[in-house]
Write a protein that binds this DNA or RNA. Structure first.
Length: 734
DNA sequence: GAGCACTGC
């Protein structure tokens, strides 16, 4: 390795050496690494009432290709279909089938505590369908799209039907349901959307909430809503006004959770019974360090080589907080791996994090060649979203990155992204990744005391997020954030901040009533701020431009990814898109150029164009889908989305301002900016094309708090634009 | 003059 790599290497601090040791020295050190490991102990088995056991997986692994390709061909193949039926029949879960059906029939709510690999998610809906007691639809919610689609494909195949007939799914941008669909897998966000049109979820006889322990924002909305709906539809809940009402269309609710939180769910649903379903997880031996490690990268490096040299074959999965750590550890591992003696197996290093291009993500699924060992460096993505085969050893840094929204009474608050300690349930989940295929080993780079003092499970998202969208969505179903029976109640500052934002947008009036404008905002699958921008574009005759920009801003990937090694080259390549007004028009220029490339070039031409210009094709593709969805919604609302302002810059900026009222700041003499609607002094992020430009007034997409409070996604606006908004100028005076 | 865990409509 060249010396450049050495500079990026983690310090082998606890070895007390500053030079790079020879491979022999390193291996010797690794056998006595200063991380002494206490005797292995078996992962605690759950003291469960064992009901059933299954050979099956809850979640088929990441599908290679589309769900259709994976399963519908199989369903056409008679032999494969018979095999599937044979598997189903032989599942031990079949023995528990009747008791499951009975319990659900005699209770409004049933909690199922299912271990990993128990097969509950694929089998239970089929049991309820085949049992014949329910004639409406059965909904099964999932936090992730890929789970919803692949589960639907699997269950459809087990039913011997084409996907989208008896069994279907519904996720954003993709839906496979028919008139005869009885089992529907959908994302929890999709069910929240459906509630906005059908607040009592009348088309469902059964709603199964899977992975409830993850406590996503949308899961919590679903849980709170279900409690309300039960009172209204079944007439026996806490809502006394609903008592005595006809139970013509009662609802059954099943909550599936993977952790001991089941008790909390049971309590929330007034002592609902808890059923335990045994899984098929292999035992995992857990090791702790004897003393706490100040440098988890160093500790991970040593532990890896210790495993590599002393332990039998099996791939190693290392959990780290973020991309930065992954890149650093990767370069250290490579350097030492290249110096290993001949008789030690090769090391294949793979990284895995969400923003990694798909091609490189796919590397982790390639089978490990004989006489080598794969070492996967991953973020939390490998904890729930992606299951990697062949992993036998897990190294757990005990750290993760956590996003947290800091609400402010004044202004709209900002997000932080900080490295924090993981939770007990997260540690257990990580360890479990070693026991998918056989007896596994988990090396925790922290002490047993540290584990014991970890909090039990992650703080629900509802306590950490901006609630603006949620507040608006609840208003549409006639509910109030303050009166919803949340499992965990968000604090007043957070609620007040959401309330204030919606009032400023004119989504609610002075009496907190939803306005017609607010109702329109909620129709769009966008942050309310961007929905307001979109609706404002009609007045300014620039819907075509605004739609592209809003779609890009809503994409989950950044348009201009930061590539530290090629930063200057990237900046140069992107210069041609630059627009003097700032980042929004610059983004639009990229999208317009991409549109032209798409019209003239094929798949590989588009890809090359993106690479050559250092723009993220994933962001453009996603924005393309979002824009198509927005166009469809506009058509239904009779809005002409083709209205264009050409190259006139003001209409787009004035539309943006309509949504970003809380994100306006004015230049101060010292070159910093002062928020108009809040107390903060902010700086323009150095990645912005407006940095150092000293524009008198700016709007920005978001604030991020790192070394400073930075405004990102910035455009310059005229002060006269700001004067058009009485609420904004009123605030300034007060 | 900088640093981005993961989802979702």
């Amino acid at each position: 390795m060249p010396t450049v790599a050495v500079a990026k290497t983690v310090q082998l601090s606890s070895l007390g050496i500053s030079h790079i040791p020879s491979p022999e020295t390193l291996l010797q050190e690794c056998r006595d690494p200063g991380i002494s490991l206490s005797p292995p102990r078996q992962a605690k088995r759950r003291p469960a009432i064992v009901m059933m056991e299954s050979e099956d997986d809850d979640h088929p692994n990441q599908p290679i290709g589309t769900p259709d390709e994976a399963f519908s061909t199989a369903s056409r193949n008679r032999k494969a279909f018979r095999h599937l039926q044979e598997q189903r029949k032989q599942l031990p879960i079949a023995r528990g089938r009747e008791s499951l059906i009975r319990s659900i029939a005699s209770n409004d709510v049933t909690i199922i505590l299912g271990e990993t690999g128990s097969g509950k998610t694929t089998q239970l809906p089929q049991y309820l369908l085949e049992g014949g007691s329910y004639h409406g639809q059965i909904a099964v919610t999932q936090p992730r799209r890929v789970a919803a689609t692949s589960l639907a494909a699997r269950v459809s195949a087990e039913q011997g039907q084409a996907l989208g007939t008896l069994v279907g799914y519904s996720v954003r941008f993709d839906e496979r349901v028919g008139l005869g669909t009885r089992i529907k897998y959908l994302t929890d966000g999709m069910l929240v959307r459906e509630m906005m049109n059908d607040p009592l979820l009348t088309c469902y006889d059964v709603v199964i909430v899977d992975e409830a322990h993850e406590r996503t924002l949308r899961t919590d909305i679903v849980l709170a809503s279900l409690k309300r709906i039960l009172a209204l539809r079944n007439g026996n809940g806490v809502d006394s006004s609903a008592k005595g009402k006809a139970k013509a269309n009662p609802l059954k609710v099943v909550i599936m959770s993977a952790t001991l939180d089941a008790e909390k769910f049971s309590k929330f649903f007034e002592s609902a019974p808890v059923l335990y379903v045994k899984g098929r997880q292999h035992p995992v031996s857990i090791y702790y360090t004897s003393s706490s490690q100040s440098d988890y990268l160093d500790a991970a490096l040593r532990t890896f080589f210790q495993i590599h040299v002393d332990r039998p074959p099996g791939d190693v999965l290392i959990f780290l907080p973020g991309q930065d750590d992954i890149e650093n550890l990767e370069s250290s591992l490579r350097m030492y791996a290249n110096q290993l003696p001949q008789n030690v197996p090769d090391v294949i290093i793979c990284s895995l994090y969400a923003s990694l291009p798909n091609g490189q993500q796919a590397k982790v699924f390639l089978p490990t060649p004989p006489d080598s060992r794969k070492c996967i460096l991953a973020t939390n993505i490998a904890e729930t979203s992606i299951t990697i085969p062949g992993v036998r050893y897990v190294i757990d840094s005990g750290k993760q990155k956590e996003k947290r929204h800091l609400a402010r009474i004044a202004g709209s608050g900002f997000d932080t992204l900080l490295t924090t300690d993981i939770t007990k349930s997260s540690a257990t989940q990580r360890a479990g990744r070693a026991g998918r295929e056989g007896h596994g080993y988990c090396f925790r780079l922290y002490t047993e005391e540290a584990f014991n003092s970890m909090i039990a499970s992650v703080e629900p998202e509802v306590l950490r997020s901006s609630l603006t969208s949620v507040y608006l969505q609840l208003k549409v179903i006639g509910q109030d954030l303050d009166t919803m029976p949340f499992m965990d109640r968000p604090d007043q500052e957070s609620v007040g901040s959401a309330l204030r934002t919606l009032w400023l947008l004119d989504a609610i009036d002075d009496s907190r009533h939803l306005t017609d404008f607010g109702r329109s905002l909620a129709v769009f699958p966008l942050e309310p701020q961007y929905a307001a921008t979109l609706l404002a574009s009609v007045k300014h005759n620039c819907t075509a431009e605004v739609m592209s920009v809003v779609a890009l801003l809503s994409s989950s990937s950044p348009l201009f990814p930061d590539t530290s090694s090629q930063r200057d080259k990237a900046n140069e390549a992107r210069t041609k898109f630059r627009h003097p007004s700032g980042d929004h028009w610059t983004m639009l220029n990229v999208f317009r150029a991409y549109d032209e490339v798409c019209a003239s070039e094929g798949k590989s031409g588009r890809k090359d164009w993106c690479k050559h210009n250092f723009v993220n094709q994933r962001a453009l593709r996603e924005a393309w889908s979002i824009r198509a969805q927005l166009r469809g919604i506009c058509e239904r609302m009779d809005i002409d989305w083709s209205l264009s302002c050409g190259n006139e810059e003001s209409p787009l900026l004035r539309s943006l301002l309509r949504g970003l009222l809380q994100h306006v700041a004015l230049l101060q003499p010292d070159g910093t900016y002062k928020q108009v609607m809040g107390p903060s002094v902010v700086k323009i992020h150095p990645s912005s094309f407006l940095t150092d430009k000293r524009s008198p007034a700016i709007i920005y997409n978001e604030l991020v708090y790192t070394t400073n409070i930075y405004a990102r996604g910035v455009s310059a606006v005229y002060k006269s634009f700001i004067a058009e908004f009485p609420k904004l100028t009123g605030m300034r005076l007060s």
